[in-house]
Amino acid sequence: MNNFTYLQATAAKDATAAVAGTKEAAFIAGGTTLLDLMKLDVENHSQLVDINMLAFKGVEQTADGLRIGALERMSDVGENPLVLQNYPVISQSLLLAASPQLRNMASIGGNILQRTRCGYFRDTAFPCNKRQPGSGCPAQDGENRGLAILGGSKSCIATYPGDLAVALVALDAVLLLENSKGKQRRVPLVDFHVVPGSTPQRETVIEPGELIVSVTVPAAAHARKSMYLKVRDRASYAFALASAAVGLDVQGGQIRSARVALGGVGTKPWRSLAAEKVLTGAPATEATFRAAAAAAVRDAQPHEQNRFKVELAQNTLVRALTELSAA
């Protein structure tokens, strides 16, 4: 870990200006990812700008849905009655993530930006294209049991590790970003994370100095009837081997609208429009769910050790859809 200076920002423009203007500066909110990676020397920042004083707070009903301030804590949002009632998939994704201690610290914005748990990325002694572009990817023919089967490339198959963003991307969430000039822009979450391609070091479209201000989620029937299912190596406090965020609006046995995203299997929070297409207008039966699951992993490119995820992701999705439609 290297030495760094610490600045506490009280206004967004001070924070964004400080980070935009200083090479190797970074924002710190909960710090649960950042400090971990700094201790591992995976990230080295000469300056940390504390944004916890900024007013990016609140969990509230808006005219067309839900707005969550980026500095809300995972635990608070997960237990928020509005979220619990109208967006259960969001609540579940939060409360099934990490541990209570981490959830009490970690912010919503930071969680969306959480970086991969790929063991090669997290150890500077290994080559890693994400950490050190061009150095190589030992995961391709190394330890890849936990890595992605969707969205990978020859450069990188690192899994996007988070749960919340999987739920949010399923529900068409939109991020509000603000840059150092005070300019705000809206980016649909589905476009926020990018697949690695040949530039795995670039994980999102966020610009240097840009902050996540808030997340908005449109209200919908498929948001009210939604759930998150997470499969992992132990019952709690583990990253997903596979997870499914699903939302359904079923009327008279027919699916009017459906939302599907997969976690633990993609290089980004994996919205599956292909699965939704199969589901929409079809009867809510196991056959439909199976067909949707098959569509969701049609482009899977498994490696030696993560081949099981092709089956696991499908089974996870089918189980989630089955349980949700029965609920």
């Binding site: 150890d123 290994f126 709690s236």
Partner: peptide, 23 residues
């Protein structure tokens, strides 16, 4: 897990080396 080519562990922390939790 020891990487087969680098003979180096890839999960040497308690987030990725799983021991049972209460649940």
């Amino acid at each position: 897990v020891r990487d087969p080519h680098y003979a180096r562990y890839v999960n040497s922390d308690l987030g990725d080396y799983h021991i049972p939790v209460n649940a």
